[in-house]
Design a protein around this nucleic acid. Sequence first.
DNA 1: GACCGAATTAACCCGTTGGTTCATTATTGC
DNA 2: GCAATAATGAACCAACGGGTTAATTCGGTC
Lengths: 220, 220
Amino acid sequence: MDKPAKLRSWKQNPEAVRADILRVARAEFARTGLSRTRIDDIAAKTKTSKRMVFYYFGDKESLYQAVLEEAYAEVRAGEAELDLEDLAPDHALRKLVEFTFDHHRRNPDFIRLVMVENIHDGSHMRNIERLAEQNVAAIRVLERICEAGRASGVFREDISPLALHWRISAMSFFNVSNRATFTLNFGDSLFDEEGQALLREEAARSIVLSALKNPGCATP
Amino acid sequence: MDKPAKLRSWKQNPEAVRADILRVARAEFARTGLSRTRIDDIAAKTKTSKRMVFYYFGDKESLYQAVLEEAYAEVRAGEAELDLEDLAPDHALRKLVEFTFDHHRRNPDFIRLVMVENIHDGSHMRNIERLAEQNVAAIRVLERICEAGRASGVFREDISPLALHWRISAMSFFNVSNRATFTLNFGDSLFDEEGQALLREEAARSIVLSALKNPGCATP
DNA sequence: GACCGAATTAACCCGTTGGTTCATTATTGC
DNA sequence: GCAATAATGAACCAACGGGTTAATTCGGTC
């Protein structure tokens, strides 16, 4: 069994160095994308040197991929903490939308990494292992909600969990990803606390409404 | 008065050269972003030379900005062609969503330029003149629809045209911008013709529903 | 047909930056 | 304590790529 990293040495501490590099690299890649990010800049903000970056991660692309992978796992783990088990389907759906909206806002670096990755046509994400299985879990949650909603006669029969997820993601993601251009085009009134509360509420409301069989009855 | 460019010369033709560079540059910048795009690559795909790119546009960033500006104007002009004047408010809104959804799909290069620009925090867009006034027009359309909808008692009183626009944009934009990562995470079933038709329909339906005062009455 | 400025070409420059070399120090297993 | 190995530091390198220099051609004008 390994000793805890902290006790191994007061000077050499590979895991900590690795984690330190990853932490800095994530911030930098999120800030300036893959090609504009300089390894020298990353190294400078690290407790260690440029030499070590290559020593631990091989090359720039591998470092970027490690960052992407770690960020993905971390964010997905955060999502798993949401508990909707004992809520009525419409309330569960609403809570899921609100949580997703907030969760995206809380993780702008992750959003930016995904933006960068989309510019690259997902070419680095392609190599990440166990991606599909991680994401199936996200859909499972919605499937259960939809199932319960249909069973109780509240939701439409032809509702698609994947399409629902797509819409929830679209609004939550866009809210963070396109803030810059949206603000330049239309002002920043939607991005103060009041504006964000409005968008969050409208997003939740429209998603729940669209899932209901008889939208007039409930009061979402 | 200028002679038509075509007749001026068989060899020298500045306007055409300029337009040629812009055309190629737009495709390249959209494909690989600002920093990964090589001026040499642009030049190679042009009828002219690298030197000419700098001759006409000064430097790389100015070229990128010219591309962004032209693409923006072009896309906004395309939007202006939509005519919703003599439709009932709910039908007008539905048609607007469907049009926006299709319009984004038809202009993936523009979407990618906006993605790139958001990665850059909109720093190049900031210098584009007459941006605000161009975009106010987009909101005006929605404002008129909302106004008519409220007047006829079909729409909610507290509806926000800007928040509505935000949601329409979110779905239309995300559908193109995040296709790569969404596909890797959840498969491509939403991106064939059938899947896209579903998303388009659900987007329109949920937007219209959310605008209605009494969602149960109409059949959106 | 000489002249001018705009348009064009080929060759070059040089700072930036991802990645390396080589030597040195710390740690671990025996 | 002693090899073997892992971790680190300083200086270095080569190519990539944005931008330039300087010399040339073209088209219109008087």
